[in-house]
């Protein structure tokens, strides 16, 4: 029996006259890898920020891990991890210092931080880099590190905003291995991406165009519905009608 950890009902965000996100409704189940696709400017990041409690919606309803996005943003924050588009660990701290810092402010005990960081460093193969400043790491490693930091406190849901932007295919593949690992542990993954091959890795995907969700299904069914050979064609079919772009 699956249980929904994210539910939204006509969730909307307006900035003045501009409707960034218009009445989106969907559910995401526990342990699911949910792909959130859309062209630039379609409203993905805005939608995600509302779900993370970083931005208050203009109207509509949403609950994350059972908490309300209007009133319980701080409870939501205890239960989610977030990795933004822009790399946002402290570049002037070392790998280990970043891990300890974020572990600490999520309230992990010293013992937990110790085991978690050992585990994480082994998993990422960062033994040599532990004492290096994060600024000196290559982009791919930074991305893997920030994902690992985002799931450090064992959140119920982790939100990833274009986590593999600018990363080579091999590193992307490794990154997705990390995502699968987390999903196997029962973490729900909510991920935005521009790479259609990555979309195929998701259990279900939604495609957003101009602030509206135009399609939502498994990759296979979407391809069947649009009589498309691959996700690229599906995306192109939907997104070419877009009026907004960055």
């Amino acid at each position: 029996m699956s249980e929904a950890v994210i539910t939204t009902d006509k969730l909307t965000k307006r900035f003045g006259d501009f409707v960034a996100v218009s009445e989106i409704s969907f559910e995401v189940d526990k342990g699911e890898i949910f792909g959130f696709l859309g062209a630039n400017g379609a409203g993905k990041t805005t939608a995600m920020r509302m779900l993370c409690g970083l931005s208050i919606p203009s109207s509509g309803k949403a609950t994350i891990a059972g908490f309300d996005v209007y009133k319980q943003t701080e409870q939501i924050k205890k239960n989610i991890g977030y990795m933004s588009q822009k790399f946002s660990l402290y570049e002037d701290l070392t790998v280990l210092e970043n891990i300890r810092f974020f572990g600490g402010i999520y309230g992990l005990t010293d013992k937990q931080i110790k085991t978690k960081s050992d585990q994480l460093i082994n998993q990422l193969g960062l033994q040599q880099e532990v004492k290096k400043l994060v600024v000196s790491l290559p982009l791919g490693w930074k991305q893997k590190l920030s994902f690992s930091v985002a799931v450090l406190h064992e959140p119920k849901i982790v939100f990833l905003d274009e986590p593999t932007g600018g990363v080579d295919p091999v590193t992307r593949r490794q990154f997705w291995d990390l995502i699968y690992d987390a999903a196997d542990r029962g973490v729900t993954i909510f991920v935005t991406t521009h790479y259609m091959d990555e979309a195929e890795y998701c259990n279900r995907i939604s495609i957003m165009v101009d602030g509206v969700i135009k399609a939502l299904d498994t990759p296979r069914k979407l391809k069947d519905n649009f009589h498309a050979a691959n996700m690229d064609e599906v995306f192109y079919e939907l997104a070419r009608g877009a009026k907004r772009s960055e």
Partner: peptide
């Protein structure tokens, strides 16, 4: 500017 505050804001701090 660097964007790290976003990572802080998404924690229960």
């Amino acid at each position: 500017e660097v964007g790290t505050i976003e990572q802080i804001n998404v924690t229960p701090i």
